[in-house]
């Protein structure tokens, strides 16, 4: 019997259960820590699926929702009966848990770190490049997402195939990303540079297009930076540009 209920895990996560099965499974969660843990993890997976569908809703929706919540009573924290998990936290415990939240701690760290260094580091990859370790790729994707979704992120054209450059002063970072980029000459890679107001170039990451697609990121302060440039450099990159820029984006 409980074997059967366990097996509803997958269907439950994607909403493929009847109301009755849903109730059975939620009752089961109160007694099964393994399923409870899996539910928490797997709902993050469906959140990714849902987020990828994001489309701006009609503008009128906002006003309708706000009007309706203005006249909609809320359940109170103490009336938390249907918990998908066993324990019911009092309001104070909820606050504590939030303060301990690993992502929030990490987020604070990031803010301090990014503000304190001129150039932290840069990284570039071809999208889907097989040589990249999976972990590295995921960490990289996440860092890129943080920059491109920063509140002050703004995008500029970059003339390397069909590409953009996104910079965020808040994140002290710049991302270049695009498609349809030509391959550099044999033995060469692309390298990103920060061009300073005194004409010096600060070295950024090197990157290679993969089937035309590329993405690279650099952490840097933008004081005194007047432009971003891309050159072709020997494999591994250079400390100073050795060729004329093939693309320049002025700030």
């Amino acid at each position: 019997m409980s074997e059967d209920v366990h097996a509803l895990l997958g269907p439950y996560i994607v909403g493929a259960v009847s109301d009755e099965e849903c109730a059975d499974f939620e009752a089961h969660l109160a007694t099964c820590s393994s399923c409870t843990e899996d539910v928490a993890n797997l709902l993050e997976v469906t959140a990714v699926l849902g987020e990828a569908e994001a489309v701006a809703p009609p503008l009128s929706l906002r006003a309708r929702v706000m009007d309706e919540i203005a006249v909609t009573a809320q359940v109170t924290p103490t009336a938390t009966p249907i918990a998908a998990t066993a324990t019911v936290a009092p309001a104070d415990a909820t606050v504590t848990a939030l303060a301990d939240h690993p992502r929030r701690r990490r987020f604070t760290l990031i803010g301090v770190a990014a503000a304190s260094l001129l150039v932290l580091a840069g990284v570039g990859i071809g999208i889907g490049s097989a040589v990249q370790d999976r972990q590295q790729q995921l960490a990289f994707e996440k860092d890129v997402m943080m920059v491109t979704s920063a509140p002050d992120a703004h995008a500029m054209d970059l003339e390397l195939g069909s590409a953009h450059l996104v910079m965020s002063e808040r994140m002290d970072a710049v991302v270049v990303m695009g498609d349809d980029a030509p391959m550099p000459h044999d033995g060469m890679e692309y390298q990103l540079w920060l061009v300073m107001d005194d004409g010096k170039a600060m070295p950024g990451p090197t990157f290679m297009p993969d089937d035309g697609s590329f993405m690279a990121m650099m952490h840097a302060g933008f004081d005194g930076v007047v432009a971003f440039a891309i050159t072709e450099e020997p494999h591994g990159g250079s400390e100073a540009p050795t060729s004329d820029p093939i693309a320049v984006t002025e700030i």
């Binding site: 770190a113 990284v123 990859i125 972990q135 590295q136 960490a139 890679e189 990451p205 090197t206």
Partner: peptide, 13 residues
């Protein structure tokens, strides 16, 4: 500050 980066650093950089 080094907590921030970079698990994702490219070997060539």
């Amino acid at each position: 500050s080094s907590d921030r980066h970079l698990r994702a650093v490219d070997d060539s950089y």
